[in-house]
Design a protein around this nucleic acid. Structure first.
Length: 125
RNA sequence: GUAUAAAGUCGCCUUAUCGUUUCGAUUUAUAUCGAGAAAGGAAAGUCCGGACACCAUAGUGAAUUGUAGCGGUUAACGACCGUCAUUACGUUUUUAACGUAAGAGGACAAGUGCAACAGAAAGCAAGUACAGGUAAUGCUGUAGUGAAACCAGGUAAACUCUACGAGGUGCAAUGUUACGUAUAUUGGAGUUCUAAGAAAUUAGAGUAGAGUUAGCGCUCAAAUCUUCAAGGGGUAAACAGCUAAAGUUAAUUAGUAAUAAUUGACGUAGAUAAAUGAUAAGGGUCACGCUUUAGCGUGAUACAGAAUCCGGCUUAUAGACUUUAUUUUAAA
RNA sequence: GGCCACGUAGUUCAAUUGGAUAGAAUGACAGAUUUCGGCUCUGUUGGUUGAAGGUUCGAGUCCUUCCGUGGUCA
């Protein structure tokens, strides 16, 4: 499995996103919050993931884009770790809660911690 | 050389690793390989003007709304260029001229409205003080009030008038496909029998069916049924529109200029919870400090992210460079 | 992405078609009343009218450009 993040892996359907926000479960490792939901979707990949940043916290489009790019990058590089342990299909949404931009290395460690917690929760069941 | 102001130009670079979007090839498919390209001067605000699309549309007038010295540029404009009145400041040889900057500026000799306080008076009128003048009188001048006054007064970024222009809605326009389902309403076609008639149709039966009843039955009866179309309700998927264009740039010519013409060169993003990146290393530029005139260390490297496409305007912007003007310093 | 609307004391609203010092209620503060508090009465306070320009003798009001807030569409 490679470090890819293609069109097929992105969460695009408005319907799914709506479902996710209504029924999804949360895990938070500040400043990242993960919303996830176990659901059968059409993609060939196990996970469809999206990324979002609030307009309230970051007013300029440039800053929002920067954060989203960082989040995507951390997800992309840590993805194989998740795929080793997963069996069912999921949809993800990463939400950035912080009000200031963090450095890449910090975000990377946070993302790893977040994924650890997620796999714990799944395997417990 | 320093500082300030105005105008204009540029607005970080290189390498490595891992990725995203597009196209092509291979493959059942995951995917693999190859190819080139990938954010701005404002992409922003949406303040104007167009292209393009759909809808509407005989003509004329009215209403609504925009513009407003004169001339030019342009696809077009409320933009741009030139120029004049006017205003402000400065200088001089001071009833004027020159320089710099501003410059939404048609008409109050068509009508209506408005002008606080002050003032006799800011209009369907009334008349103060002083002086002059008359047969006589606000008849004339000055003073005083005020932003404005014995005047065809002022005011149109007041209504209005004049001249010229403007159909509406916007790529979430619009077209095609897919998914999918309650059916109000409207229209067409179809579905029983008998009689009359050439036919449209009319009259009757009470069949299919509908309503009601526990049921028998009773009532209605081809529409309340079927089907097709319009219409309406929902879903939020795909493709086209979608990027080569009033294109960018250099030289020459015409023009005071905006700009135009000719020739040469270039071929320039196309996403949709929204790509154009992330990390590491090195370099450039600027500031500060140390040492010392060549290095070292630390910090900074702006404003900001395409969403149908162009032409302007407005606003944000670290730093660098060019030109012009002014000030001051040093040298010759 | 397109298209609209609205900004006045801490809060909710006024301001006669441009005319003076921008008002009212409520709130806040002080005093009176009360043993104390509330109610009530009296007084005081608080605004660069979202910002910057312009027109005008004079702008909350007219014009232009920005800033902020909200709405709408298939």
């Amino acid at each position: 499995m490679q470090f890819t993040y293609k069109k097929q892996e992105k969460l695009k359907s408005k319907k799914l996103i709506k479902l996710l926000f209504e029924n999804g479960k949360k895990i938070t490792v500040f400043p990242i919050m993960l919303l996830y939901l176990k659901i059968e979707h059409d993609s060939d990949y196990l996970i469809q993931a999206g990324v979002t940043v609030s307009k309230k916290n970051f007013k300029n489009a440039v800053d929002r884009n920067r954060i989203k790019r960082l989040l995507r990058e951390t997800y992309r590089l840590n993805k194989p770790f998740l795929y080793e342990k997963l069996e069912n299909k999921y949809i993800f949404m990463f939400i950035y809660l912080g009000k200031e931009e963090l450095k890449y290395q910090l975000l990377d460690t946070k993302m790893k911690e977040l994924m650890n917690r997620f796999t714990h929760k799944i395997t417990e069941k």
